[in-house]
Design a protein around this nucleic acid. Structure first.
Lengths: 226, 226
DNA sequence: CTTGACACGTGTACAGCGTACGCCTACTTT
DNA sequence: AAAGTAGGCGTACGCTGTACACGTGTCAAG
């Protein structure tokens, strides 16, 4: 796994093949399949490793600087591994380290007193920026070419829920809240709304900066008002 | 090209191979290479086609609703072709339709009276959201595995500049301004700054919403303050 | 001390991929 | 009529992921 990350750092993600990695390890290609089921799972593992490099949230900080610091840490991790962004974007399954990160990320807003509802929208808005770059989050839309996962037996689902509740309380809270909301849409969350929420938050910010005659804050040595 | 888009719509981008596309057209694979140099160029062309589907900016609207409408149009185009997002993210060369779109996008802010400087940062901040999703823009960082493009003879470069100036005046204006800025960094633009600018714009927006006791605007039938 | 399970590596094989190279045919332009 | 050109064809090469069967070594239970 570490070797895969190192190799990708050197040759990029496209050039990382099972054969090249096997060569690197002085081993025959098929040997790798004793450790991962397939190439996809290898990429999953690599992403896990990168997510693990992100610093934990600074304890005792206000929500804003906690979030800010965490995102910048994620960005640093991504910059160390330029292939990681693309790899994350193509990943479809959410692995434990990713869920951990999301859960604790949600936790930062909750600890700052954000309502579940606002937290939910805010998570969408910050989207992949939370990874040090940007992507749509919660993107469960079935893409063509990806087979729908096999349905699980109900008791297994229940057990899964238990596990989830214990390990990812914040994710669950948000998911539950958005599931039975008294909105017009009813079940699930409204992608269009989330997109416009993020867009408008940015546009409103731009408007404010423009109205107050913003000139390069860089020269003044700070970013925005924060 | 149209056939490629249609096929990708059906089977996804991963499953779109030169051979499948050739089959679709009732033709032998190598026949495709009379129309495109390679698969990359095919993808470039497909992205061009999608960008061409985005509506032109509404004439006579204020900058904010012009930008808003355009982004939502881009989003609609992307939703019609779920593979397009990923395709655009892997594209490295900026093709004419893409440059046209960027130029006219910059133009919307300029027409709204934004300074070149603010426009620049704002373009970074809105990033790929301008595409109906989100990505880092102006991302010219050389990735491993991509050969550096062959350098051009200087007179060709000059001619290129002429063309650029005529066709993409807004892009050029922004590029020029950021090239010789009196900042500490000097030449080029500061990725880190741009990232933090966008992040802080969002965080400031979140803070404002939180402070004014935001509750689901969806129930009230509007997004944010706009 | 033997036996079997298990983790891990090997070798061979196959189908699918992008595409280099050379050849052929039909149509347009002169 | 001649020549160029746009497009399609066939073959072939090296690369990919991975299925399947077959070793080995380590270790616990009989």
């Amino acid at each position: 796994m570490r070797a895969a990350v190192a190799l990708a750092d050197r040759v990029g993600i496209e050039a990382l093949s099972m054969r090249k990695l096997a060569d690197e390890l002085g081993v025959v290609p098929m040997a790798l399949y004793k450790h991962v089921a397939n190439r996809e799972e290898l990429l999953d593992g690599m992403v896990e490793a990168i997510v693990g490099e992100i610093d934990p949230p600074t304890a005792g900080a206000d929500w804003k600087s906690a979030v800010r610091g965490r995102v910048l840490s994620a960005r640093r991790a991504l910059q160390r591994h330029p292939w990681a962004r693309q790899a994350m974007e193509t990943r479809t399954t959410k692995t434990p380290a990713v869920l951990d990160y999301m859960d604790s990320f949600i936790g930062m807003f909750r600890a700052g007193g954000f309502s579940i509802d606002l937290t939910h929208h805010v998570m969408h808005a910050i989207g992949g920026r939370m990874w040090g770059f940007t992507q749509e989050l919660f993107d469960d839309a079935p893409r063509p070419g990806t087979a729908p996962r096999a349905p699980m037996p109900p008791e297994a689902q229940a057990a899964m829920m238990q596990q989830m509740a214990a390990r990812y309380p914040n994710i669950l809270a948000v998911a539950m809240a958005s599931a039975h909301e008294d909105s017009a849409v009813g079940q699930g969350c409204d992608d269009q709304f989330e997109f416009e929420f993020a867009l408008d938050t940015l546009l409103d910010g731009f408007e404010r900066l423009h109205q107050q005659g913003w000139t390069s804050a860089r020269a003044r040595g700070q970013a925005t008002g924060s």
